[in-house]
Amino acid sequence: MIPFILLTLLGLTVGIVFASFFEWTLHKYVMHRPVGKFRYAFNAHAVVHHQVFKADQTYHLHDEKDKETIPMAWWNGAVLTMIGAIPFACISLLVGNWGFTVGGVLAFAAYYCFYEYIHWCMHLPKARRVEKPHWFRKLNGHHLLHHRYMHKNFNVVLPLADYLLGTLILRAKTTFMQARGPAVPDVQPESV
């Protein structure tokens, strides 16, 4: 029998990778198109969030009334974590040890919290410590390009799924008036 702690660590590792694909799938198929009569996520994200925040200077918050459109609803984290935990729970039932589920739930919860925090920092920059590292600038440019090309760069946290599923774009296809700032990289086409 595999020890609980090893299964928990395995669940954490698998959970982070799985969360990238979960985020990508949710973003592409639920947040960017209605699913039958379920339009809540589509309206909140594709219609409202993308209408307020584009890839130009409006990528950053300009009107305080729009602040509420940056994060997901308060209850989304718990619901998404529970949905993401389902395959982990099924595997735990098979092996008779809940460590894998514990790791998966921890991974999903951490991924979601990290998503919300860096997404908030991307659209409402304040020169926070998290906005200074190179990895944040890369992810911010990645997300900025999503606001330019809504059917590319669906990941915010870990662009592994974007890379493996063919939706990764590293630079703009054409020149555009992009958002600027200390934590925003230049994503314009490379000059030839």
Rank of each mutant, 00 (worst) to 15 (best):
D56Y: 00
C113T: 11
H146G: 01
A78T: 07
G104A: 02
S92T: 07
P133N: 15
M82S: 10
K67I: 11
G141C: 12
L94F: 04
F108S: 10
D56I: 00
P71S: 04
H32M: 09
E68F: 10
A110V: 13
I86E: 09
E64V: 12
A46N: 08
P133T: 01
G103H: 04
A85P: 06
K65C: 10
H134A: 15
H123F: 09
F38Q: 15
P125I: 01
R39P: 08
K126Q: 12
C90L: 13
G104S: 07
I118S: 00
I83T: 09
K28C: 04
A46K: 15
L61W: 12
H45L: 06
V52Y: 03
L145R: 01
T25P: 11
V79S: 12
H49P: 05
F53W: 11
N97E: 13
D66Q: 07
Y111P: 07
I118F: 04
G141V: 09
H45T: 06
A109C: 04
G96D: 02
E116K: 01
A89V: 08
V95C: 00
M82K: 10
V48R: 10
H49D: 10
H143I: 03
M31H: 09
A44I: 02
Q51C: 05
H147T: 00
K28G: 02
D56P: 07
Y117A: 04
V48L: 12
M72R: 05
